[in-house]
Write a protein that binds this DNA or RNA. Structure first.
Length: 765
RNA sequence: GGGCGGUUAGCUCAGCUGAUUAGAGCGACUGUUUUACACACAGUAGGCCAUAGGUUUGAAUCCUAUACCGCCCACCA
């Protein structure tokens, strides 16, 4: 057959992907059915970190897909029962923020203008389109995912898992409702978790104010109305004359107030004057000081950042307008001692497209990470059923006992450190797109109450609400027996549903009678959890170690009694060739689809694998991709040479091999052995590099060149032809996980004996 | 403030448990259109492996310190 002299990735790849999909081999059940995998073979499973349905894939996703697909293909070719589950993440705040911003740009309407139902319809529409784009891109990369098991963090089976998880944790007291200080985003009108905060540096005037005999400093004079407590370090000699609990009359913003002296070690004696007043409602550190001394807390700023009646004449004024007025008043009253205009401080913002965070004390739902409970499962190594533990301890336990290994190892330390400082996790959000909290209120008892629950902040001590938690929507109220209970309007943090990902995609929760998985909802796949959990590898970027990896460990160990995965492989960030983050504003984004279009998916994949170690950032340039495109072409021509020169070999009898022939075979076997070793140790880069080097500079440059003369010799010809075909077959097999398209395309043209229908399921010995 | 990582050819990086003439890719230069491939081939140039000490028969590799670059966490009113 006449083959073109240059490999054309663009014309080949989509057809090859179709062949793979049609073969069914991405689904391990099909592999078993068709006999390319044993039913009792060792399992290898990965859940794809679900991309957010907020737009399109970037190079980071491409790198993730390349790494995972390489591992998956390798293990599939090793004959393991291999499952890679695809899915997408609804990404609550991020997605809703994107749709809200698009809506506002288009029609100048806010979410409150269009209402919950219409906004959700818009979000779902956007999510659907985004999903389709993502799936298309994922396929373009050649990812061998089992699409028959595709999941979505917000679909019905996952919703069932979320409701069950919430209910289980609530029943054991690990989810509770509490009035605590949270990060409130006034722009998105929702709480956000500690991890979702991004600190931005800002220069703002810093004011020194006279507070009775003291000088206090602040960058936020608008919070100072209610300051009745003045705090200093108990060992500060400068203020030894003042004693804890002592009161003094102070002339303040709205006239005379009674101030109380508090001594607390949280005060830094070196900073400023060593004295500060506190605003417990709007500052975490102040909140903790107030909690320690049981001090009164007062709200100053409302949820829209407007001042409350405590501000007197300024009540109802937005703080951005109020601030200069307050400074002016301070000046008039002679309370302003001095101003430092060059003060640099850091402002907390919502990294998911929101605004400046205003801490607030609010009634929200929390996961208790330090509360003791008795462990409900048997089978988790090192913890007995009924043993007292905490969620924090579970998270530490799984890694400390080496049941979970984090690569690179140095991230284990980072992980421990993060857990040690972990506070209870606020899981309720006031956005509309997400899993609605499975909490219900009896409408008989709370007829005057307002929903959503966050609005009840005006009356935080109200304990009269009759509520209950249910995994299934109740038809009749179990409290009054007659009303239709109303569901809480809040939604859950998106990471709560992604934290269940390894098992919510494998059939959890189970029907207690049949032990069959319910979430999967497909007959024949009910044993997915038994077969594939814990998953083998969790591969993701190191930037979401805390957001996601830690939470999966928490939720999986607690809810299933199993670790979610055995190995965590953390890849680095893909940066531009100068080491800068890729961003729209810098205009340095390299789009994976562009690279695939120009150079092929194989070249794009190699450029993301070679030179990338776990945890290390990768600098990518178009030159690199072009270089690997050249390699795919080289490989194609190696294939052509072998097909042209060894095609007429008699397949029936094995010819005699010369010493050189044997050496060539042995050399290749060494390379394969080494590649195997590297892959088992997750050194993908090393494996790919050695194979690359062998194919080009050993097999092509030496063996093929030498063969040109050997093949002229009638005695030696058959032996050499045999060797060329053997090595070619092995080389295609070993390279297939890295460059699946071109190797599959060559394989189709090769005159091999007992060829499999696809290289995809050729055996890696 | 605490922690972590990096510093090897012009650029991007390998170099795993110490002994290599210190490597690869891209780029540069010279030559070659040879019937697998010019997206190629043959060759050339280019490195006191950040700095200073130490351990060792032997260090790019292990230890200590310093400098610079980067990242993460905490956060000071």
């Amino acid at each position: 057959m006449e083959l073109p002299t240059a490999y054309n990735a663009k014309e080949t790849e989509d057809n090859i992907y179709k062949l793979w999909e049609q073969s069914g081999y991405f689904n391990p059940d099909e592999c078993i059915k068709k006999g390319v995998c044993q039913k009792n073979a060792k399992a290898f499973s990965i859940v794809l970190p679900p991309p957010n349905v907020t737009g399109t894939l970037h190079m980071g996703h491409a790198s993730m897909l390349a790494i995972e697909d390489t591992l998956v293909r390798y293990h599939r070719m090793k004959g393991e029962k291999t499952l890679w589950i695809p899915g997408t993440d609804h990404a609550g705040i991020a997605t809703q923020a994107k749709v809200e911003s698009d809506l506002y740009k288009k029609t100048k309407e806010t979410r409150y203008d269009v209402g919950r139902e219409k906004l959700l319809a818009l979000v779902q529409q956007f999510a659907k389109e985004s999903h389709d784009t993502i799936v298309h891109q994922v396929k373009k990369m050649g990812a061998s995912l089992d699409w028959s098991r595709e999941a979505y963090t917000l679909d019905e089976p996952r919703n069932k898992a979320v409701r069950t998880a919430f209910k289980t944790m609530y029943d054991q007291g690990l989810i509770y409702r509490g009035d605590r200080i949270v990060n409130w985003d006034p722009k998105m009108q929702t709480t956000v978790s500690d991890d979702e905060i991004e600190w931005k540096e800002e220069t703002a005037p810093f004011y020194y104010l006279k507070y009775g005999p003291f000088i206090i400093g602040t960058a936020r004079p608008e919070t100072k109305f209610g300051d009745k407590f003045v705090v200093m370090h108990p060992k500060d000699k400068r203020y030894a004359q003042y004693s804890h609990g002592q009161t003094l009359q102070v002339d303040w913003l709205n006239g005379k107030i009674t101030a109380t002296v508090i001594k607390d070690t949280a005060v830094d004696m070196e900073f400023g004057t060593g004295v500060m007043t506190i605003t417990p409602w709007h500052d975490r550190v102040d909140f903790e000081i107030a909690a320690r001394h049981n001090l009164e807390k007062e709200q100053i700023i409302d949820l829209k950042r407007k001042l409350l009646p405590i501000a007197g004449t300024l009540a109802g004024t937005h703080i951005s307008k109020a601030r200069p007025l307050i400074v002016q008043r301070l000046q008039e009253k002679g309370l302003l001692a001095s101003t430092d205009a060059t003060y640099i401080h850091r402002v907390a913002t919502n990294s998911r497209g929101g605004g400046v965070i205003e801490p607030q004390i609010m009634r929200q739902w929390f996961v208790a990470v330090t509360k003791e409970f008795s462990f409900p499962h048997a089978g988790l190594k090192g913890i007995r059923k009924g043993e007292k533990t905490t969620l924090k301890k579970l998270m530490l336990h799984a890694v400390k006992t080496k049941q979970i290994e984090i690569l690179p190892k140095r991230f284990e330390k980072v992980y421990y450190h993060w857990i040690n400082d972990l506070r209870d996790w606020c899981v309720s959000r006031q956005i509309w797109f997400g899993h609605q909290i499975p909490v219900y209120y009896c409408t008989q008892e709370i007829s005057n109450s307002q929903f959503p629950i966050s609005k009840q902040i005006q009356n935080p001590n109200d304990q009269n609400i009759n509520m209950f938690v249910a995994a299934e929507k109740p038809t009749k109220c179990p409290i009054c027996g007659s009303c239709t209970p109303q569901q809480d309007q809040d939604t859950l943090d998106t990471w709560f549903s992604s934290g269940l990902w390894t098992f919510s995609t494998l059939g959890w929760p189970f029907d207690s009678a049949t032990k069959h998985g319910l979430a999967q909802g497909k007959p024949g796949q009910q044993n997915d959890f038994a077969n594939y959990h814990p998953t083998s590898v969790l591969e993701t970027g190191y930037d979401i170690l805390f957001f996601w990896v830690a939470r999966m460990i928490l939720l999986s160990t607690y809810l299933t009694g199993q670790i979610p995965f055995k190995t965590v492989y953390l890849h680095g960030l893909v940066r531009d060739n100068q080491g800068r983050k890729m961003s729209k504003s810098l205009g340095n984004i390299i789009n994976p689809l562009d690279m695939i279009d120009k150079y092929g998916a194989d070249a794009t994949r190699l450029s993301l694998i070679i030179g990338a170690g776990p945890g290390n950032d990768l600098k990518l340039s178009e030159d690199r991709v072009r270089g690997y495109r050249n390699f795919t072409n080289k490989l194609w021509n190696i294939g052509r040479f072998v097909a042209m020169n060894a095609g007429d070999l008699d397949l029936e009898k094995k010819p005699a091999l010369s010493k050189e022939d044997k050496k060539i075979l042995a050399d290749f076997l060494n390379i394969r052995k080494s590649a195997t070793k590297h892959l088992e140790a997750f050194r993908l880069s090393q494996a790919a590099e050695e194979l690359y080097h062998y194919a080009w500079h050993a097999f092509a440059d030496k063996v093929l060149e030498d063969s040109k003369t050997v093949l002229q010799n009638a005695q030696k010809k058959a032996g050499r032809q045999f060797v060329l075909k053997e090595v070619m077959r092995g080389l295609l097999t070993c390279l297939h996980p890295f460059t699946p398209f071109v190797t599959e395309a060559i394989y189709r043209e090769m005159p091999f004996q007992n060829k499999k229908d696809l290289l995809l399921v050729e055996t890696w010995k």
